[in-house]
Design a protein around this nucleic acid. Structure first.
Lengths: 140, 140
DNA sequence: GCGGAATATTAGCCTGACTAAGTTAGTTGG
DNA sequence: CCAACTAACTTAGTCAGGCTAATATTCCGC
């Protein structure tokens, strides 16, 4: 019964709750919220339109509007317009925004890196093997 | 470099963000929020005091007060008093609360179970092996 | 060129987190 | 023994971040 789905589900559920917890604390005290960080990440490779951002973050458009408003006030992004379609607003990283994104990424990755470095090589290998499986969950 | 902590950290970070996402959606549409579910779970084995609950959920006391207020209004918990110390308020599951807890647990576990059942046996084994490692993260 | 579809924004509401301040009850020291 | 301190909660006020409904603007097909 070691691979019994129900039993496994209880364990996964417990571990995930623990990790959610961890993730929330990881970003505490940083200059932007985790949502804002996520949005900045979406802008890394060029301007995006509002609907794209909303879909990518599985959020309604009004919610994204508010997020972008805040990022714009903070000077991290700028709004533009699509020359081909005046209905479309584009959003783009400012120089400050790109710097902030990289700084936060370094901090976040650094945090996790330290925790992972404390594991044994075997444990890291086990973890690495499980990542594709975890990523698969929820795609159903 | 397959077990390079920095590289692994980036992947873990990405997968965790995905899973957080999944978790939030999993509970959507259920009769109580995931926070409320967590609190009910803490009460499963008997009455607890407010400070205990707040600490256990890493939340300030006022936040817990509000949560308990809602649960009490919903008839899922009752407040009592510690006969030995009149400053202390205790919180306890009602019969309804216990039923709700079990119902939600069944629903949540069921959801995950279905997703896990869709995996191969090998994938489940890989996942099971990684759980202890994941649980270890964040304990540092 | 008009009506319907697409794109955003604004407004209003909810949850859940926080801090600051207030209340009530125990504890301790002069 | 009572004044001051500490502990346990609650209340009030603020903020982020999510939602839906309503509104403006622009595009497109006929």
């Amino acid at each position: 019964m070691r691979d019994d789905p129900t039993h496994l589900a209880e364990q996964v559920s417990t571990v995930l709750r623990h990790l959610v917890f961890l993730l929330r604390r990881t970003v505490a005290g940083q200059p932007i919220t985790s949502q804002q960080y996520g949005v900045l990440g979406s802008l890394e490779h060029g301007p995006r339109r509002m609907t794209e951002l909303a879909e990518e973050h599985a959020v309604q458009l009004p919610t994204m509007t508010v997020q972008i408003n805040r990022l714009e006030e903070a000077g991290l992004v700028t709004r533009g317009s699509d020359p081909a379609d005046a209905r479309v607003r584009t959003v783009e990283l400012t120089v400050d925004g790109r710097e902030r994104l990289l700084a936060v990424r370094r901090a976040r990755i650094g945090h996790l890196t330290r925790e992972l470095a404390a594991l044994t090589e075997d444990e890291r290998a086990t973890l690495a093997a499980a990542l594709p499986v975890l990523a698969k969950l929820g795609r159903s």
